[in-house]
């Protein structure tokens, strides 16, 4: 009301304040994103079209040659297979276990907060320390897992040497660290499910398991899809666990036969061990595209569920 008397100048400032300031408030994010997100992304795209080795100052434009080489590269496909395998082996049991743990935590328990905080504990540990400890547990000669196998009369396993065995071991690291985290997300969603649904089911004589299967899981579906999408993105980027699983040997080949080299690790090998920046950038972009496609597929599934 007062602005009517305050002249065009003040009105202009007022307009600017109302219309312009929201952009100012969000500008820092976009500036930062441009500097540390967008620029590296675009620059990597540019580098991926050149033949650039760090040891050799000459940089040559080669177009899509790096990508053509990548498609024909056995080691890339091997890494992609390992990535998918480790992703499946870690995500599926992880989410199932998280669902079960969340269900248990959702009941009336003594010291409920303690348990709920407890499941998150593995998540706050250092990934480096955890991986090195797991690598010791899965040691060939003096590892605790092989010791336990020996107790029950089974032959020891050279966990690092085998393809499946190394994938299982690495998946267990991921599962151990992230199950509790996902369980808490499920727990939060479970608490939004109206209690009367369960009450009605109990009146109908449904067992705990039937309640879980017929009420809890369907009501959680959007949350489950969300965790699945996010686990997919993370699973495809996995690098620290396979790198550190062969600690001390100092090279990122993921085992003597690349049996647990993931795409992320292959990228690291090409970029920072071979210094092939052009080729490594092509791997980075290809990996990014694969993740985008996976995310879109997931997004499509989510929409269909919502509309049905």
């Amino acid at each position: 009301m007062t602005s009517a008397r305050s002249g065009p100048r003040r009105r202009w400032i007022y307009q600017l304040d109302v219309k312009g300031s929201p952009y100012l408030y969000i500008a820092p994010f976009f500036l930062l994103f441009g500097a540390v997100g967008m620029f590296p992304l675009l620059y990597t795209a540019y580098v991926s079209l050149t033949d650039w080795n760090l040891l050799d100052p000459a940089r040559e434009w080669v177009g899509l040659a790096n990508y053509a080489e990548l498609v024909a590269d056995d080691y890339f496909w091997n890494a992609l297979f390992n990535t998918v395998s480790i992703w499946l082996l870690s995500t599926v049991p992880q989410l199932l276990a998280a669902l079960f743990i969340a269900h248990m935590l959702n009941r009336r328990l003594r010291a409920r907060t303690l348990f709920r905080m407890g499941v998150l504990l593995p998540n706050v540990t250092s990934i480096v320390a955890v991986t090195i400890i797991f690598a010791q547990l899965f040691g060939r000669d003096f590892g605790m897992v092989n010791w336990a196998l020996d107790l029950v009369g089974l032959d020891p396993i050279d966990w690092q040497a085998g393809t499946l065995s190394s994938h299982v071991a690495i998946s267990l690291i991921v599962i151990w660290r992230w199950t509790g985290y996902n369980a808490l997300i499920y727990l939060a969603a479970m608490q939004t499910i109206p209690e009367d649904l369960y009450e009605a089911a109990r009146l109908d004589g449904a067992s705990q398991f039937t309640q879980f299967r017929k009420i809890t899981v369907p009501m959680l579906r959007p949350t489950i899809i969300f965790t699945a999408v996010v686990s997919t993105i993370g699973g495809f980027q996995i690098i620290a666990e396979p790198l550190l699983f062969q600690a001390g040997t100092g090279n990122p080949t993921g085992g003597s036969d690349r049996q647990f080299q993931t795409v992320g690790l292959y990228l690291y090998e090409q970029g920072f061990s071979m210094y092939e920046f052009g080729y490594a950038s092509a791997i980075a972009w290809t990996l990014c595209m694969i993740i985008v496609v996976m995310a879109l597929v997931n997004f499509a599934i989510t929409r269909r569920i919502r509309s049905s």
Binding site: R177, W178, I185
Partner: peptide, 13 residues
Amino acid sequence: MSAGRIRLAAGAL
């Protein structure tokens, strides 16, 4: 969840 965590882990590494 996996995305943030592993990206974070890789970043930290």
